[in-house]
């Protein structure tokens, strides 16, 4: 009886683990490799800092109405 319970639990956990691995490997986010920038400190030290890209979209402020037509 206990053997069946253990075997069932083991099988279900194995199934979940495989599902997790398959789901994880399915998601393939595009690697965003940001360039590194050398930042010079006041005391002459240089540190590499990943340059964060500026957002591609900007919030615009419309000052005049859109011309009709």
């Amino acid at each position: 009886m206990m053997r069946s319970v253990w075997a069932t639990l083991m099988s279900v956990w194995l199934l979940f683990a495989v599902i997790a691995v398959l789901a994880w490997t399915r998601q393939q986010p595009a690697p965003t490799q940001s360039p590194l920038v050398v930042v010079k400190g006041k005391n002459g030290t240089q540190t590499l800092v990943p340059a964060t890209a500026s957002p591609t979209t900007h919030a615009t402020t419309r000052t005049s109405p859109v011309p009709a037509g």
Partner: peptide
Amino acid sequence: WLVARAAGLT
């Protein structure tokens, strides 16, 4: 599809 593949491998 995920369950089918995982169950097959298991």
